[in-house]
Design a binder for these strands. Structure first.
Lengths: 425, 425
DNA sequence: CTGTTAGCGCATTCAG
DNA sequence: CTGAATGCGCTAACAG
């Protein structure tokens, strides 16, 4: 507790300034002096005082990752990817995490989300990454955008991963419910979707610790420049987005079921207020509509909203769906976890998957391939998306055009879907 | 970025000290003044400067949670529980997380673990919680204990969850491999295991913000006192432990299989260097030995070590086991995830579970009950253990006697285990 | 109850 | 290349 820079300086017979310089390593120091200092640091077991350092330098190495549910591998995979991006590629010998990447569990609560953002703002976090779908409550959206705007203004990099970009002011008065639209995401979808693997690295791999805008004055100058470069889709707020193609994925999934011959397709959706829920549902309905107007008309009745993205919601939702529409021959679930719950409910009702009812999930979490039957689902490149978000948060990769990168979704056809059995009744 | 306490003070027409007082809330301030200040804070969108505050107060509200694999629900559940404990029960109006509980993903790497601890130490974290099994490398153990000791000495609370307590100096020269011993954990196991649900709360629910050792002088005094109260099992280092009864759980599981009639029981274990692996294996062998010396003798050949606690290790391990000992009628897995991999390999070899081979997991993660067949496993009260660890980290619950609380493991018999089929050959 | 006064430990100016 | 001096923004002691 007690040992400070001054102690180290005294032991090494140098000034505190010199110790500071060898520790931060961004300033020339004589080799002999340097090693003397390093030895003193070691002998005294000196550990830098983060708060003091952050105060003096007006910067911190904290990076916050907000997740809706830390016990859900969906978020775990993304968070792990972001975090791994903070560590590797630092070059230096014995390099470890230069950044303290920390994940904060909001439990899906808007309030907690804001609270964590405040806490992170207090710490002057270098970046924050928000993962997963957002809650579409106007009041909360406004509060959230305000926080994010201020964070960005303070120089904190803000990256959204798996969440649509905030609407730019001009785009206000959204149209939740309309199957398609002109939001930022739609724009990205329309264009050539950016694929993570093809992404161009902004810097050469070996380039380490390039000093950029280090002094307070330089920093200020950079900030002053930012407004000039502003584009659309949240980029104007300095917010970058890695979005998932939830609509496209759901569309492909439903199309797959229709192609198999299913006509009564139930949907056990997530909580209605989340963007992810809405987008997947929209994709589903779009596929229905594309097939025939009749299917589209009945969709409402065949949709059940669960209270969450958990197994219980799938279980309950499936029972409700069966009660409401016993004729369903296929059930789409909000995600893989929900799909497992659906399967459980179905089995309990004596229905076999896929012989009696086909079931499909979303996300392709690791366990999905191992479920039995193996789950037909939509693969989202969670890890790659998280890694990309991490790189953007670190400024290690050039922002995508428009500030939004949309990541592809891939249909994974496995054993849980099959043609409907011929009607015997 | 620019707005500081002084700005708020100026706007509210009070001194900076007063603003600080209303914000920290631990000092009497006149109602009128308070609301004036609050309004100014609001209008200016003022956000406290964490580093400055931490520096001045010589304390921080950061709590670190170290996990081996953030994508593994085992850790997600524990981490979520710890985190939720940081938020709730704070009493105050509009209360959110007073503590910034953050989870750090070590990826199971000892180096990363140390690095994160250093980072947390830099930030003068209020507490750190280390979850999951430790790596039993003497060199790393020494380094780790050194870090933890220093952290504890700095006033950071250190809590281990799902990891055995560090050996007290006198207990050095451990006996990895011996089926039983006199380590700290064994002591705890021998005594009445502390059950989380019955745990007594240290404080009344309503008691908020009781000031303890607030001034630097008082703080110093308390720290000086600590050495006097030292007990055993890491308590001497100020380290508290919530341990899992891995040995007992594995013992019960193996006993279950033996009772069903199995005699050739394979074991697809985790990485050999981890404490969790060793303890579960020891429990398994103990049950074998208790049944008959003959079984114990053959155990070595029936044990395969995987590279991790993931599905792939289970898959590979099972294939190796089948090659080495095709006669197995039951397979125990390192954990549920590994068990899923084992099942997959078995099925691929045309073996049915449980008709041809019984399979059992460990942990009882949420998906285990949904697997088909539903997995027989050992339930570990992950959430409760994490919550308890969180409370200990906050000092909200009295430390268990000896500094170690062992949490019960419960056998969950489901569909993946059955009697061996009568030998037809 | 409130204002004034000192630092907390470090990074960064400026002089050497 | 190095040392001395200044202040980051806040909290805590001290007087009123």
């Amino acid at each position: 507790m007690a040992v400070t820079l001054a102690d180290v300086a005294a032991r090494a017979g140098v000034s505190a300034a010199t110790v500071s310089r060898v520790l931060s390593g961004n300033y020339p120091v004589a080799g002999a002096t340097r090693s003397r200092v390093l030895r003193a640091v070691d002998e005294l077991e000196y550990v830098i005082n983060g708060p003091a350092s952050a105060l003096a330098a007006a910067s911190s190495d904290l990076v916050g990752i907000l997740v809706n549910d830390i016990a859900d591998p969906f978020f775990g995979i993304i968070a792990g990817a972001v975090q791994s991006e903070m560590n590797g590629a630092e070059g230096g010998p014995g390099a470890g995490p230069r950044k303290l990447a920390v994940v904060c569990n909001t439990g899906g609560s808007p309030g907690q989300e804001l609270t964590y953002l405040t806490l992170l703002q207090r710490q002057r976090a270098a970046a924050v990454v928000l993962t997963g779908g957002a809650v579409e409550d106007p009041e909360h959206s406004a509060a959230l955008e305000g926080r994010l705007r201020r964070l960005a203004a303070d120089g904190t990099r803000v990256v959204l991963c798996g969440r649509p970009p905030p609407r730019t002011p001009g785009e206000r008065g959204g149209r939740p419910g309309k199957p398609d639209g002109a939001s930022g995401e739609a724009v990205a979808e329309a264009g050539e979707p950016v694929r993570v693997r093809d992404a161009v690295r902004a810097e050469e791999p070996g380039a380490e610790g390039r000093r950029q805008a280090r002094t307070p004055l330089e920093r200020r100058a950079v900030r002053a420049l930012l407004p000039e470069q502003r584009g659309g889709s949240g980029e104007g707020l300095g917010i970058l987005t890695v979005a998932f193609d939830n609509r496209g994925g759901a569309r492909a999934l439903t199309a797959h079921l229709l192609a198999l011959g299913h006509r009564a397709v139930g949907y056990v959706a997530g909580p209605p207020e989340r963007t992810t829920t809405r987008h997947r549902l929209e994709g589903h309905r779009a596929a229905l509509a594309a097939h025939s107007p009749g299917l589209s008309a009945g969709a409402e009745r065949l949709t059940v909203h669960g209270g969450g993205y958990d197994r219980g919601s799938g279980y309950d939702g499936a029972l409700e769906l069966l009660r409401r529409a016993p004729e369903v021959t296929a059930v789409l679930a909000a995600n893989d976890t929900v799909a497992l719950g659906v399967c459980a409910a179905l089995r309990e009702r004596g229905l076999r998957v896929p012989e009696d009812v086909s079931v499909a999930g979303f996300d392709d979490l690791p366990f999905s391939a191992d479920a039995s039957p193996a789950l037909t689902t939509v693969r989202l490149p969670l890890y790659e998306a998280g890694a990309r978000a991490g790189r953007l948060a670190l400024g290690r990769q050039a922002p995508p055009p428009g500030g939004v990168a949309t990541v592809r979704a891939e249909l994974m056809v496995r054993a849980s879907t099959a043609p409907p059995r011929p009607r015997t009744g």
